[in-house]
């Protein structure tokens, strides 16, 4: 009876939390290719305008022919005679074979140059190199001496754009890493190592997401890139390198965390939690979002997530651990110290 009432209270709480409007990602510009902030995205946009010009012109010519026929070549009322039968014309047909061939040749040369410019096979000098591992349904960013999830931080200097050279690997199925404002996309394929060169020329927050269908929560495999001034970045990185804060005030929550299956999947450096299936939580509170960008990292959202992630991201790999309301509060109090 008592257990039943507790469960009822818990589910009421859960539905209350789940009904909080989901604020999503902190405001970031639309990930449009028309607002590029780096060299590869610039090149792509230049080629796009060339395409718009050439294809637009071809389109207008053909449309003009069609509309000329539709407007000028109607059958007059009451006229049953057949028009003159024209079987073809070699010079005209030769013209609309050869001219398109020449256009294709020019377009090919320009675009081929674009391919060789953008598809770099080795990191440019001074590039920041990060290993990206696609998981269902979140991104792991491995900087070598620490790892984080969903939010990729890169430094920006005043005088020159930052090159980002990513090594792409997958832990399960095919994903695709896509940051429209920073460059093209490249698939993230299991059993294969791919590389992607991006560039960011001004500080800011940029968004993108997984572009290759990878199952249930493909829609919520979001990416945020935070390009920040170098000093700010260094401070962030220095903090990431540290082990997790150990605050005695939240020992109870930490105890629950460590004795629950949380640690099979999550890592908190400095504790026995060393799972690698799920995001590293050592500095959870340094991230703006949870659930790979699905919701803002606020105390309420965090509690809702720990209570039952399936309410927020149905089908995701994290189950509800069936904690009581008090336990969820304690665990979240602990998690909130992981700055």
């Amino acid at each position: 009876m008592l257990i039943g009432m507790v469960n009822f209270a818990n589910s009421m709480l859960a539905s209350l939390i789940a009904s909080i409007p989901d604020p999503g990602i902190p405001s970031a510009p639309t990930p449009t290719m028309f607002n590029p902030v780096g060299a590869p995205a610039d090149t792509i946009l230049d080629i796009t305008w060339l395409l718009v010009g050439i294809c637009g012109l071809i389109g207008l010519v053909v449309l003009a022919m069609i509309f000329f026929a539709v407007i000028r070549c109607r059958q007059p009322k009451g006229d049953d005679t057949e028009p003159a039968q024209v079987y073809g014309s070699n010079p005209i047909e030769l013209a609309w074979t050869v001219i398109p061939l020449l256009i294709v040749f020019v377009l090919f040369m320009v675009s081929a140059r674009g391919i060789f410019d953008i598809e770099k096979t080795s990191p440019p000098d001074g590039a920041i190199e990060v290993r990206v591992i696609g998981h269902r349904w979140w991104w792991e960013f491995d900087y070598g001496d620490f790892a984080t999830a969903a939010e990729l931080h890169v430094p920006i200097d005043e005088d020159k754009p930052t090159d980002i050279y990513l090594t792409l690997e997958s832990a399960d199925v095919i994903h695709s890493f896509w940051m429209p404002q920073l460059g093209g996309k490249t698939d993230v394929i299991p059993n294969r190592i791919n590389h992607l060169w991006l560039q960011v020329a001004k500080a800011g927050t940029y968004v993108g997401q997984c572009a290759e269908y990878c199952g249930n929560q493909h829609a919520n495999m979001l990416i945020t890139v935070v390009a920040q001034p170098r000093a700010e970045y260094e401070a962030w990185a220095a903090n990431q390198r540290r082990e997790a804060v150990d605050d005695r005030a939240v020992a109870a929550g930490k105890h629950i965390f460590l004795r629950t299956a949380c640690i099979n999947c999550h890592t908190v450096r400095g504790t026995v939690a060393n799972g690698t299936f799920a995001p590293d939580l050592t500095h959870l509170m340094s991230r703006d979002t949870i659930g790979s960008g699905i919701a803002r990292n606020t105390p309420n959202n965090l509690r809702a997530w720990v209570w039952d992630p399936q309410n927020i991201k149905p089908g995701c790999e994290m189950p509800s651990m069936k904690l009581t309301r008090e336990e969820v509060d304690l665990v979240c109090a602990y998690l909130e110290t992981l700055r």
Binding site: M33, I47, T48, L51, L107, I118, G184, K185, Y213
Partner: peptide
């Protein structure tokens, strides 16, 4: 447009 590889990188999928 899509045949042009750099543009395809921007909008494929």
């Amino acid at each position: 447009f899509l045949a042009t590889v750099p543009f395809d990188w921007a909008v494929s999928d």
